[in-house]
Amino acid sequence: MSHVEGRRVLVVEDDAAIRELLHLHLGLAGFSVEDIGDGRDALDVARAQKFDLLVFDVMLPGLDGISLCRAVRTAGVNTGTPILILTARDSEADIVIGLDSGADDYLTKPFGVRELQARVAALMRRTQPDGADPTTPPSTVLRLAPHVTMDIDRRQVLVDGAPVDLTRQEFDLLHQLVARRGIVFSRARLLQTVWKDDAYVTERTVDTVVSRLRKKLEGDPRQPALILTAWGVGYKFADAE
C-alpha cells in the first residue's frame, strides 16, 4: 500500500480483533485512524469530521453499514469520500446493496492484509482534488492497455492503432468502468449511470454490452484481462499496471 501520510480514515467495526487489525495496518500505511464500534455513533462523527477514507462493516449495532453508507452519501462533509464495506463471504446480497447504496468497493471476511492493502491503494489512487469531478479522468486520452487507448473528448477507442466502432452504451459503460478502474460496479449501478431512466433495460443488458466490449477490446474474450467479472456482483476494469 502506498504511503498516505496525513490522510484520515474512519473505521467502523464492532469486532474488536478486526478493528485492531484494520487500525494497525492502516496506521502503518500512514493513515490517522479513528475507529468506532457503533453505527449510530459513527454517523455523528462521519457527518461532522472530514475523512479521506471510510471503512464500514455491514453488520453493526445501532445502525447497520448499508444504512450508514446511504446516510453519509445524503448529507455531511463526506458525501464524496471513498467508502470500503466489509461483509461476510456468503453475503452477496449485502455486497450488491452496499455498492448501490454508495460504497465504492468491498472486502469479504476473512480477508488478508495484502487484499486490504490493494483495495485501499486502489481507492486512494482515485481520490480527486477538492472540486474535481470524481467520474472524469484528468486526461482526455487514456491508455487502457498496451494495445488499447481511449479518447474521451472524441468518444473514440483505438485497438492496435485502429479505431473500433462502439455504440453509445458501449462507450459510456466502458468510460464508467475506466474512470474508476479497479472499483467494482454492480449491474444495477451501471444501469443507473449508463441507461439512467430507460425502463426497458434489465441487468441482463449490462452482461450483453460487456460481452460485446470484450469481443472488441480483449485479446481473448473468453479470458478477459481488461473488463473483469466480480462474481455475483458486477464488473470492474483491471487496475492500472
Rank of each mutant, 00 (worst) to 15 (best):
A132S: 15
G112T: 05
K196C: 10
L177D: 00
D94C: 08
F171Q: 05
Q192E: 14
A122Q: 08
V120A: 08
P146K: 08
V194L: 02
E218C: 03
A122W: 02
P137D: 14
L43F: 14
R187G: 00
I18M: 13
D44A: 12
C69E: 13
L86N: 07
D94P: 02
V184E: 00
K236M: 09
T149E: 12
T74Y: 05
A162C: 09
T208I: 14
L166K: 08
L53D: 01
V11Q: 01
R189W: 07
A71T: 08
M124N: 04
I183P: 00
D104M: 06
L226R: 00
G102P: 03
D94A: 10
F171T: 07
L60I: 03
I95P: 01
P138S: 11
Y235R: 11
T136F: 02
A103I: 05
E170V: 10
E20I: 10
P138M: 03
R154S: 13
R126Q: 12
L10I: 07
I83F: 02
F185K: 01
M150V: 02
A103G: 05
P129T: 10
I97L: 08
G62D: 11
G62E: 10
V184R: 00
R180Q: 11
L21H: 10
C69I: 14
P82R: 04
R40I: 11
P221I: 02
K216V: 14
I183D: 01
V141A: 08
Q176F: 05
